[in-house]
Design a protein around this nucleic acid. Sequence first.
DNA 1: TTGCGTGCAAAGGTTTTGCATGGCA
DNA 2: TGCCATGCAAAACCTTTGCACGCAA
Lengths: 134, 134
Amino acid sequence: MKGVYKTKPRNAIIKFLKENADTRFTARDILNAVKVDGEELDRSTIYRNIERLCREGKLVKYKETDVNATCYQYTEEHGSCHSHMHAQCSGCGKIFHLDNELVEEATSKIKSEYGIDIDYGKTIIVCQCKECKE
Amino acid sequence: MKGVYKTKPRNAIIKFLKENADTRFTARDILNAVKVDGEELDRSTIYRNIERLCREGKLVKYKETDVNATCYQYTEEHGSCHSHMHAQCSGCGKIFHLDNELVEEATSKIKSEYGIDIDYGKTIIVCQCKECKE
DNA sequence: TTGCGTGCAAAGGTTTTGCATGGCA
DNA sequence: TGCCATGCAAAACCTTTGCACGCAA
C-alpha cells in the first residue's frame, strides 16, 4: 500500500477489527474498546481510519433503522462478503453468512414476480437467532 | 383514530406525503417543502408527525448507507408496513411491497437451516428494478 | 373545558473539518 | 527530511425532549 504508515492507533484499530470480525460495530464501539497507552483514541482518528478501510474494501458500511450510528463489519477474513447475503440478529448482532445456493433458490420466485435483481452482497436480513428468541 | 386532531401542520405534512408517494424523502425535505401560512414548520413537529405515521404503518422508515438522514416513503395503500418485507431499488429508490405468502414460502428453508426467525417488517431487500437494470 | 399538538429552546449524539504538532519511513 | 497521521477544537448535522401555550373537539 503506497503512502500508508503503520501507526499505533491504526494498528490498534485493525487489531480490534480482526478480533471482532462477524460482529457489527460502530465508531463508538471502537472508541470505547481501543486504547493506546491507556488512552482513548480521538474520534477523528477513528473516523478517518474507518473511511480508509471502507475505501480499501476491508470494511462493509451499512445502516440499520434502529441503530442511530453507522454500522460496520470487517470482511477481510471472508473475502467474499460482497457476493452472498447476510442475516443479522437484532438482539445480539450475530451475523449469519447465508449459503448462496439456498438464497438463490429461495428468491427466484420473488425475482421473477417483481422483475427485480437482488443484490445479495448488500442485503441484510433482519432476524432473531435461536438464543435471542427466548 | 382516537385522540387525533386535525391541525394545519399535520394536514400540510400529509398533503406533501401524498403528493410524493413514490419518492423517498427525509425530514429535511419536509422542512424545506412544507409551509403553513408562509412559515416553515418546527423540526419537532415534523419528527413527531413522522413518528406517528410510522407507528400507524403509513410510512416506511429506512436508512441508506449514502444518505446520512433517515429516509421515509409514504405507503398508505399497503396498510401496516411492519408486517411485510420490502425490496428497494438501489438505482431509483422505488420500493416494492413483497407478498407475504411468497416471502414466507421462500424463506422457510433458510429459517430452519440457520435456526432464525426473520423480521419481515424490518428487512429491506436491496435490488435493481427492471428499468434500472438497463 | 379537556387534553392533544405545536413551537421554542436546549440538549445529546454522530460525523466532519481546519490546523498545528508529532511520528513513520 | 518529507509526508502522513494524529489530536484538538470547533462546527455541522440530525434527532430528541421538556415545557408552556394555543387550538381542536
